[in-house]
Amino acid sequence: MRQHETGNSTDQAIRKIVVLPLRIALEISVKSLRVRFFRNMLTVMTLVLAVAFFTFVLVSSDLARGLWNSGDPALAQTLEKAGFDLPAPGESLASTAKERWLVALSLLVCMVGIINAQLMAVTERFREIGTMKCLGALDSFVLRLFLIEAGLQGLAGSLAGSLLGLLIAMALAMLRFGLAAAAQASPAALGLDVLAGIGVGLALSLIGVFYPALVAARMQPVEAMRAE
């Protein structure tokens, strides 16, 4: 009888749906993250450290700029003592090429670390992916699940990292320059630094998972289940 039903083409069009509602996808992702808590913490820690460093550099240079822009010669002197290359009076304090290099390299290292971690995590779950495909999951479901997981990891890691970087940079600046460092800083600039940190962290996490997830999603179910 069922076969007769599917013979009807309009009926078929209505019944031929395969879906993964976002709420369910989110639920599954959170569950997977919780079950593999420690492995995920490792991935997240990579991100926390990289983002913390990134935000630290941004905030530190913002704080120094704040001190420089205050025009106070005493502060300028402490800046110089602390090793900053001061520009001519009136010009703004720019970040050095060395700083930019350090940031770019740290992000690159972090990216490789995250791709590696995600590749392991995805490989570990080939069987699960194959099973899901047998149950009617489309490639896009698999991709979506991994992207949501990476997104959540990225959000948590970069939020923590960003705040950590901000705190360390503030504390260090106050130790070196006194309370003036905090007083002269522009809150808007610091806020932007934190946001930039979160954005970069999230992007790193998503870019890192994309390739492994794509490979996994495109596998034939049997290939995926055969892999151990």
Partner: peptide, 9 residues
């Protein structure tokens, strides 16, 4: 791919 997923489902 879609019809195949439906078939498996």
């Amino acid at each position: 791919a879609f019809e195949l997923a439906w078939l498996r489902n």
